[in-house]
Amino acid sequence: MEKAAFYILSFVIIVSSLFMITRKNPVHSVLWMLLTFFSVAGIFIQLNAEFIAATQVIVYAGAILVLYLFVVMLLNPKTHGFAKIPYRYGMTILVVIVFVLQIFMAASMSKVLGIKGVITSEKMAEIGNVKLFGAELFNTYIVPFEIASILLLVAMIGAIVLALRK
């Protein structure tokens, strides 16, 4: 059951992301990206990260994607096709080589290094993902959390300043 869910989700992720980068119409690309994000949320649920899955749906599929859709519809919706560069085939081969090497490295060299923590799947099922996550975020990572909020404030001001019509 778990295996079947994983394979179905990965198939949907890979196919929809391939469709996303090859569509001519940017609106279609955005909609394929929505499917990718929902499937990634499914993968997060498989990995005991329910809160992250909910955040993925709310933030990525809800906020970021609507922002992209607004800009796509606001600007010129016609596409510009793919890069027409003379060394395109060389670049394609390079990308494919890097890509295959990545997969082989991930498959062969992956070891679970580092210190094993105490939050096993059983403990996660007992206490609950959100409770453990909140305790970790607000006890250990409180300063990075504040910095992230300042980052969002700076990004908001920057976006307003950049998009303001003079």
């Binding site: 990995l47 005991n48 990260a49 809160f51 992250i52 955040t55 679970v112 580092g114 210190i115 094993k116 923590g117 105490v118 939050i119 096993t120 799947s121 453990l132 996550f133 970790e136 975020l137 250990t140 990572y141 990075p144 992230a148």
Partner: peptide, 15 residues
């Protein structure tokens, strides 16, 4: 984060 039995990875996803 799952296979090391830690939850720090999920915090970094939020960042």
């Amino acid at each position: 984060s799952k296979y090391l039995s830690q939850i720090s990875g999920q915090v970094f996803i939020i960042f």
